[in-house]
């Protein structure tokens, strides 16, 4: 589904990704973790071409993302993305947020799009917030709207870039529950997160990144039982201690 092969990237002279290779198979949930500044967010934004990379290749469903001739909007339309800061459109209601790309990208008729949006917003527990604007919603509610917005495109895979990092602690779970339900439904997911509990419950594999490189690509059980690298051991000790 997603194949990342030998991807490197530098900002000026500072390398942010060093020869990263990884793959996410259909239906798989892969959690990407590591200390901040390790290149996790950059890597996940490379997958749908929001951030360009310097060398290597990324294929999504066989389509090469980095090629000049690639129709990036068409690729992105089939991959949902959820951002750390929600990025709902502030001038629109929750329902309009979810319907917008359905209408303008998938060319669904408004009635059809709104029906789908309503169904999805109900699924994330926000049936009563259709007409609310983003600033009338809590962080957790906003993030659930943004998950619905991504799902509305009937994506083949979902990318999550630290979806709970900007949330107050009491709202983290409502978002993780939605993500967990999605994973159980068989959605292909690549999730950058510090939520090790979520990784332990839901992930198939864990990628551990440090300083722009993927140090570990391990099945979940092995990663938590005994990480192969010292850096990962230190990281786990830190995030699991509280």
């Amino acid at each position: 589904m997603i194949e990342i092969a030998d991807v490197s990237k530098a900002y000026g002279r500072t390398p942010v990704l060093r020869h990263c290779s990884a793959a996410v198979a259909r239906g798989e949930v892969v959690v990407v973790c590591g200390p901040s500044g390790s290149g996790k967010s950059t890597l996940i934004k490379c997958v749908n071409g929001l951030v360009p990379f310097d060398s290597g290749s990324i294929r999504v469903n066989g389509v090469s993302v980095g090629d000049k001739g690639t129709d990036l909007p068409a690729v992105r339309a089939r991959i949902g993305m959820v951002f750390q800061n929600f990025e709902l459109y502030p001038h629109m209601t929750a329902l309009q947020n979810v319907s917008l790309a359905q209408i303008h990208v998938l060319k669904r008729r408004r009635a059809e799009a709104d029906a789908r949006s309503e169904q999805l917003l109900r699924r994330v527990g926000l049936a009563d917030k259709l007409a609310s604007r983003p600033d009338q919603l809590s962080g957790g509610q906003q993030q659930r709207v943004s998950i619905a917005r991504a799902l509305a495109m009937d994506p083949q895979a979902m990318l999550f870039d630290e979806p709970t990092s900007a949330l107050d602690p009491e709202m983290v779970n409502e978002v993780l529950e939605v993500m967990q339900a999605l994973a159980l439904d068989g959605m292909t997911m690549m999730v950058v997160t510090h939520e090790m509990g979520f990784a332990q419950r839901v992930a198939d594999r864990v990628l551990f990144m440090d300083d722009g490189a993927i140090l570990e690509d391990t099945p979940k059980a092995a990663f938590f039982a005994e990480p192969a690298t010292e850096r990962a051991r230190q990281f786990l000790a830190k995030v699991l201690s509280h």
Partner: peptide
């Protein structure tokens, strides 16, 4: 905002 909109395929 731009990234979010681009990510939906616009």
């Amino acid at each position: 905002q731009t990234q979010a909109a681009l990510a939906t395929g616009m």
